[in-house]
Design a protein around this nucleic acid. Structure first.
Lengths: 225, 225
DNA sequence: TCATCAGGTAACCAATTAGTTACAGAGGGT
DNA sequence: ACCCTCTGTAACTAATTGGTTACCTGATGA
């Protein structure tokens, strides 16, 4: 079971009537398992997720899960990889360098916050993977080749801002990226305990909007000359 | 099993020779279970933690765990409560209002960062509790009574800073607190995936020191007039 | 049409799991 | 010294778990 994903691709390459509904559809089954696994791992973590539960969520049985993905850990890794691929794909639509430096930073902050907001399972998977100290991420061959172009673009935006005197000379791309990610991640990933502790719902739209504006403000304030 | 903690207290109130080493020491056993549970839950989350593992880590057997804490969930809640009590206790030693407004904010930022750095299991427990949407925290009677005085003190510090024209009028205590916590929490809780993705060790002292300074800088920059 | 094989169901399995039961004995009070 | 209770060990239990085996059949190609 060294290339289960390759198998699925080969099957779909074969011709068949486009309007014919199959009783068997390996691609559909596989995708359903992957989607169900994403939810189950996101909700229960790696240790708490149950193979039976995933199979049931996917409307199939465990046998197919082992057939396509090998075992629980490989399935988890595949879910994690897909989550990273998804955000990298979304990042490619970003062009923060085509704006003024300030606008570029603002766009990055908004993109990151909104991506996190719209993909809570990504945050949850990050939490789980860090609980296990990036144990599976470090094994991923696939993700080794998958780089984010964002830090590079961010460097250019910051360089432009520094050249025009809008940003401070010490503004560092990694720090700016981590600052934005920190503000978005913490608020959303810890919203439940924070809402309980502070006795207010951090997830109501007004609070989310306010925090979005705050992220932009903090980020720009930290780098403006 | 509604007051297992009360039982332990009652036992220790009895007189006995202070230099006599007991074969049985309920207080010691109980504390060992609590410590072991903290580590096990912090490392594996609620779903992945194993009762047998906790008992073994504590150098006792499961029976004692159920004896003192009732069941796995009650033990977990107790661990969580103790974690919150610990940070609240540490906060009481803080007096951010006894300084200049800027110094007060700086002290809060440093305290929070250093506390998170020194108590990684607290971060991990927060992650786990949020994975389960504060399910147990919301049930805690004990934590309902335990308020943090920090937001109040922070309000006063900010008010002083505004009055003296050092801070902007829109500086909000909750936002300032969340900003500081965000920067500290994300960096530390996600250090494993971040270090893997960026190919550098975020946990080496030089990087930790740099991030500490960055937190102070970002926080102050976001509220300075 | 027939043969083959991958996709699929359902039963099975050994180990693990949270929790329970049976019993012993340390420690303290009378 | 005796008695009682709490603290503790170890065995037990029913259910669950990740994974495997046995067998069926839909889909496709010749």
């Amino acid at each position: 079971m060294d290339d289960s994903s390759g198998k699925g691709v080969k099957k779909t390459a074969r011709r068949r009537a486009p309007d014919r509904v199959l009783q068997r559809d390996p691609e559909r089954t596989r995708a359903a398992i992957l989607e169900a696994a994403t939810q189950e791992f996101a909700e229960n973590g790696m240790g708490g997720a149950r193979v039976d539960a995933i199979a049931e969520r996917a409307g199939t049985n465990k046998r197919m899960l082992y057939h396509y993905f090998g075992d629980k850990e490989q399935l988890y890794l595949h879910v994690l990889e897909e989550a990273y691929v998804a955000i990298r794909t979304a990042e490619r639509a970003l062009h923060i360098g085509d704006r003024t430096p300030e606008e570029g930073i603002t766009e990055l902050a908004l993109f990151t916050w909104r991506y996190f907001l719209k993909n809570p399972e990504f945050l949850s998977l990050l939490g789980t993977e860090n609980l296990h100290r990036a144990r599976w991420l470090r094994q991923s061959v696939r993700l080794k080749e998958l780089h984010s172009h964002l830090i590079g673009e961010l460097s250019q935006v910051l360089a432009q801002g520094k050249a025009s005197g809008v940003f401070i000379p010490t503004a560092d791309p990694l720090n700016v990226y981590l600052t934005i990610a920190s503000l978005g991640y913490f608020y959303l990933s810890n919203q439940y305990t924070l809402s309980t502790i502070f006795g207010r719902d951090l997830a109501v739209p007004a609070n989310l909007d306010a925090w979005e504006r705050h992220i932009v403000h903090v980020t720009l304030a930290s780098i403006k000359a």
